[in-house]
Design a protein around this nucleic acid. Structure first.
Lengths: 156, 156
DNA sequence: GCTTATAGCGGGAAATTATTGCGTGGATCG
DNA sequence: CGATCCACGCAATAATTTCCCGCTATAAGC
């Protein structure tokens, strides 16, 4: 993981659709060397896959919500059950175990408020061991996720 | 945007590295037709690009933080200035204007708590018009973002 | 009811891109 | 100083994307 790998990771995070030859040019390497490095990054798990970035609004998802959740019990069993249940619902985009105020932070997408109401009742309310939920709505996305900042060099 | 488009979007969100021929097979279409649909989705802005998914821990980012921010003023000018400033910092991964308690929700990544301290002082503290900040740390990622749920059919 | 325009599909050729093998140069270590 | 290892560039090959053409089905118009 040297400077070149960092540049590759950074470039691929933003756009993975460019041919290797173009990337190779950008990092001043031959296409084959470049390709081998990318492969190595994949096998090392640095790059875990490739995905299309899609615009949620264009598929009818206009509402994005962050939900703070507190459990009735913080026992190992209660948390395990909750975390397993989270995995079953596609509407829960993301979930973090948090420090501070609430136990968990969820991120949810919905077509509109009506549908969010359905999700709230049919999906979130079914999660086991929930004591309280607090929904905060994203009114506008100021900055969208476009890759992590890549440290200059992890190992020169 | 029919059932097949939905299937394509769903598939490409999870893995965009498979050849079109495989995708075509999965949606029961010829490679050429499949390719045309993907192109159309790109041009319609449904697919806005392709990106490598990377594991933040493997590039040395072990800490992920959500920061709730309240401004001293909710005037149009104050918000505009704040939002512009947010764009200047790579360490701010994401930013939402929120309803409810705080004004903004930020997502920040850092190598460790020391570096988060630096970011907090050198970057977050420089944001204009901030009245208060509350950091919540992600102790563990329960579910990682892996694409939006694609509605069955937006237009059959 | 028949025709015509339109949109989407499948097949295949051509161009682009990814992939692998091979030989070479430079750095490291003994 | 020599052996070894690693990563590189070059070039051939394999895979994939991209484009063009003719066909079919659906729907509107006459």
């Amino acid at each position: 993981m040297d400077r070149i790998d960092a540049a590759l990771v950074d470039a691929l995070q933003h756009d993975s659709s460019r041919p290797v030859a173009v990337l190779a040019d950008a990092v001043a390497l031959s296409p084959s060397a470049c390709h081998r490095r990318i492969r190595a990054l994949e096998e090392a798990g640095v790059i875990s896959g490739y995905a299309a970035r899609i615009d949620p609004r264009r598929i009818g998802l206009a509402v994005e919500v962050f939900v703070e959740i507190t459990l009735t019990s913080q026992s190992r069993e209660a948390m395990d059950r909750f975390e397993r249940a989270v995995g079953d619902f596609d509407d829960i985009l993301e979930c973090h175990l948090m420090s501070g105020g609430a136990d968990y932070l969820l991120r949810v997408a919905a077509a509109d408020l009506d549908q969010y109401d359905h999700i709230h009742r049919d999906c979130l309310a079914r999660l086991p061991g929930v004591s309280s939920m607090r929904s905060s709505f994203s009114l506008r996305r100021i900055k969208r996720f476009a890759g992590y900042p890549v440290p200059r060099a992890v190992r020169p």
